[in-house]
Design a protein around this nucleic acid. Structure first.
Lengths: 202, 202
DNA sequence: TCCGGGATTGACTGACCAGTCAATCTGTAC
DNA sequence: GTACAGATTGACTGGTCAGTCAATCCCGGA
């Protein structure tokens, strides 16, 4: 292994340790030394790879959010009905949580819901997700599949808000967790937002 | 004015100043001296009325959340269709924001969405709101007005998540604000969650 | 008028912790 | 084998601020 590869690995080691520490203790409550200890690395090395504690969280968020934005773009590019697009997006987010709950917890708790700190810093990135979801709704309205009396911006907020709230429910044990629940959730979110809670007579 | 009344006023003065400071700077970013300055009161007096900085935010949250929980209980007690119950709840929250946006910003940003700090402390209170909303959905399902393939817990999360996301949108200028928008929002949230985004043929 | 006690003041302290830095180590190139 | 550069170490520093406290003020009763 070259020196460069070793350095990449060490950087990753620190990022992964940070995920565990942030998920366990929270960003503001943990010390940089906790991250160093978790990574079994000297305190100073953290500052060799990152210029500040903030930059670690920024890196974790941006890496993951970029993947989400690409996924949404990709979904929107396919020729499937809008309901299936929303299902795919909800599914992607739910699967992200299933695959790495600690990372998703950190991203949601410390960034997207932390409106006054990192949420504000990354508002443009976060907003981009809303914009892309709104674009899907807008297209569905033009195709007369979705009703047009709910503005796309608004629908995007409701959809994203519902998804994030469900993840928050899992994170804080307000909703039961498990593979079954995760699969059900994908359907239920889309059924609620697209189909509505009311029974349709007939 | 008696001494006691004066004390009550001073306490209120500090709480109101804290709302402005928390809304402007955020709880973690502001110093206790900022609150004292805003209230035009000596630093030490804050500690005469409150035992810690945290207690100030706790007080603000609990005061307001209690009002919300009572409002939901009251709505549920009336004999109106479930859709109107949800409209009344969304309306109450939206009107709370219209009446005192700074306070609602503080409650949402610093407590209900601050899952790792105050959100955790007040989880039982916050959960109570979900439970009461879920009860409304449950009853609507028994009355065969709402479909029963979406669990009440889940529906409550989706509904509350949508409402909170819309408020967050206003707070951070992601959605246009104004009296018209506030009124529209009440209808749109309920239309989205109860009626669904999809057009109904016929 | 005088006294007691709650209201009010703001300087001070003690703890905490992000970030720095000089020293040391280690792999690589020649 | 030697020298260089980047990797690694962890003790230390500087600034921040929540909370304390002793002193002072002032209202209301006797």
């Amino acid at each position: 292994m070259t020196r460069t590869q070793a350095a990449v690995d060490k950087r990753r080691l620190i990022l992964d340790a940070a995920v565990r520490v942030f998920a366990r203790q929270g960003f503001h409550t943990c010390r940089v030394s906790d991250i160093a200890d978790e990574a079994r690395v000297a305190y100073g090395l953290v500052y060799h790879y990152f210029k500040s504690k903030d930059e670690i969280l920024d890196t974790l968020f941006l890496e993951r959010w970029d993947i989400l934005l690409r996924a949404i773009t990709e979904v929107d590019a396919t020729e499937i009905p809008p309901r299936e697009k929303l299902y795919a997006i909800a599914g992607f987010i739910v699967d992200s949580y299933r695959h790495d709950p600690e990372l998703m917890k950190v991203i949601i708790v410390e960034v997207t819901r932390a409106a006054n700190t990192f949420g504000r810093t990354h508002l443009p990135q976060i907003r981009q997700a809303y914009i892309q979801i709104a674009a899907i709704v807008d297209r569905a309205q033009r195709e007369r599949i979705f009703r047009n009396d709910v503005t796309p911006d608004f629908a995007a907020m409701a959809f994203y808000g519902a998804v994030e709230q469900v993840l928050t429910g899992w994170i804080f044990s307000l909703l039961p967790v498990g593979d079954r629940e995760y699969e059900d959730a994908k359907t239920l979110i889309v059924e609620t937002i697209c189909g509505g809670l009311e029974r349709v007579e007939g």
